[in-house]
Amino acid sequence: MRRYFGRKLLIYGLTFFVAVTINWSIPRFMPGDPVQSMLSRANISQPEAVEAMRVHYTNLFGLDLPLWKQYLNFWGALLKGDLGISIWLFPTPVTDVIVRAVPYTLALLIPAILLSWVAGNRFGAFAARRTWLDNTVLPVGYVLTATPYMWLAILLAWALGIVAGIFPVAGAYSFAMEPSWSPAFLASLAQHWFLPFASLFLVAFGGWAIGMRNMIIYELEADYVHYLEALGASRRLVRRYAFRNAILPQITGLALQLGVLVAGALVTEIVFSYPGLGHLILQAIQNQDFFLLQGTFLFVVIGVLIANFVIDIVYVLVDPRTRTGMGGAA
């Protein structure tokens, strides 16, 4: 088991290293002077701000130094938590901008991922080999999982927000309010949270339901199922065992889908102008704020790595094969 976690941690460490290296090298390997092109493309009018930024960025990039030194400096700054200064919200440090946005993204992502996974698995398992349910769940599930996240978000915003007027379609709370712990504010938060959450939940739900349905059908053909049936075990017991075995690949699937789910959350936030990381990304791109974009990238990567590690731990807890040192599927 120590070997299993050691391997995983090595991969995550290397991944982080690769991510940082990508971050460092992309501005340097693109043609032209990155500072100049960044400033000229940035939408900034005050000359003093431009000058301050030029000094700052030239220092930060350290372009007059040899490449290996630039690279080490980059790591040095990173380890101190310095991701540079945002252009969009000059002169706020990128780290601060991101830390303010992260809670909104997590508030959407974590419930959407967990609830869709639990509900999708239950529903998919229930539908498998039950003819009429299977015949409805399958097409609906495939349509949901094929839907681009932002399109479902747009549809929900349009139908329930604009046309029906039940839900607000922009922001995380009413613009008329000041953040506080008052019930009215919390209600406003919940109201603004619901649609983005629902659209994330629905798309992911379709994927899990289908995955589980297919896994259960495979499991119901497994040898241990045939043996139980030959000994006259109840249908309930057979299904329970099949579910327990089918859930393992679904846990691995959760790790594999993390990237897609995060991407879904980002575009969904953009549709609803929800002030999480997705919104930052859009602002960073529109304002040519590369430091903000790169900082967000690193935060997302770190988040995904942590989530992967949590899933690894869960997997070990539920699959006896990894615990006995026999390998297992993860």
Partner: peptide, 8 residues
């Protein structure tokens, strides 16, 4: 595999 493709 673990790098989130869209952000890259």
């Amino acid at each position: 595999l673990v790098l989130p493709a869209l952000v890259v």
